[in-house]
Design a protein around this nucleic acid. Structure first.
Length: 309
DNA sequence: AAGAACATCAACCGCTCCAAA
DNA sequence: CTTTGGAGCGGTTGATGTTCT
């Protein structure tokens, strides 16, 4: 492939100095970045345009959140990675203020190892061992949920394009500020998850899971911090019918059934969307609580999964 | 205390994509 | 239609920091 342009021109490489950072920030704040290729000369930097762009987008940009990833963010990354693979830039669009590079690094240094430790293949996101039935159960349910999310991420559904627009572009229909600034498809699924869990409580459909009740406190879009709900999930192990319960009309649906239903029934999406827009979106969900901490908290400190974290 | 091993993450490289000529 | 060049993406490297022996 030959030598890089920066080598040929004798441009500086390696870590950026504070002075270089200052020059780059000052220039972009005054003129915008414009053509990255032309920027270094105009800004008085001995760097290639590519290096400047990287430094700006991954480090100097003012709208970047740095530091430790929240467990909520971790969950989002894992879910999106299952859905999108190593498409870091696509994943980054769902994590406001995080860069693709940062997410990629975090995945490679933390999350990948953690999933491996849990016996989950970080590429396929499936349980590596048949013995790990609890996790595969969870994975199965998660997959059904992710399929629905994939539909929303990939493009407009066949029905009701106006609904899609209202979701995909967090704009006029919503007054909540937190909704204005980020893609909504994930939130749709969060809401769905919350609704599903709350329905479980309503219908009191409880099965057993290793004789253990996992109590999951859910904070959905319509739940403010002070109005969190607690749902009890009991999952039947050894039952021929997978029943990580999703209750509907008094019955219990398996993840497969839900997945099929999602595939076959666009009307469901519209109905759900309707419900979400009309009944749920009004609430403040900035305090949407933490998936992992709740799960782990309720599993207890003796749990083998807890020890991984 | 010192060196080895491991972890982290900023930065680079090579490649693809895509718009403009 | 083909070529060209800029922008962006994902994989990888390597400097630095931290932990272990």
């Amino acid at each position: 492939m030959g030598r890089s342009p920066s080598f040929e021109k004798g441009l500086k490489k390696g870590p950026w100095t504070m002075d270089e950072d200052r020059k780059l920030v000052a220039y972009i704040e005054e003129h915008g970045h414009g053509s990255w290729r032309a920027l270094p000369v105009k800004a008085g930097l001995q760097r290639c345009g590519k290096s400047c762009r990287l430094r700006w987008t991954n480090y100097l940009r003012p709208d970047i959140k740095r530091g430790r990833f929240s467990l909520q963010e971790e969950q989002t990354i894992i879910q999106l990675h299952a859905l999108l693979g190593n498409r870091w830039s696509a994943i980054a669009t769902h994590l406001p203020k995080r860069t693709d590079n940062e997410i990629k690094n975090y995945w490679n240094t933390h999350l990948k190892k953690r999933l491996t430790k849990m016996g989950i293949d970080p590429i396929t996101h499936k349980s590596k061992t048949a013995a790990n039935t609890n996790l595969s159960h969870m994975t199965q349910w998660e997959n059904a949920r992710l399929e629905a999310e994939a539909r929303l991420v990939r493009g407009p559904p066949r029905v009701a394009s106006h609904f899609y627009q209202r979701f995909h572009y967090a704009s006029a229909p919503f007054t909540n500020k937190s909704l204005m600034s980020q893609p909504l498809c994930l939130d749709v699924l969060k809401a769905w998850q919350g609704i599903t869990l709350s329905k479980l409580t309503d219908l009191n459909r409880l099965e057993t899971f290793n004789n253990q009740t996992i109590s999951v406190e859910t904070s959905t879009l319509n739940n403010t911090k002070s109005e969190k709900r607690t749902s009890e999930l009991k999952i039947s192990e050894g039952s021929s019918e997978d029943t990580l319960g999703c209750a509907k009309d008094g019955g219990v649906q398996t993840p497969h059934e839900v997945s099929d239903m999602i595939h076959q029934d666009d009307y469901l999406i519209e109905a759900f969307t309707n419900h979400l827009v009309n009944d749920v979106m009004g609430g403040d969900y900035e305090d949407d609580n933490n998936y992992w901490s709740n799960i782990l908290g309720n599993l207890g400190s003796n749990s083998s999964i807890s020890s991984i974290f």
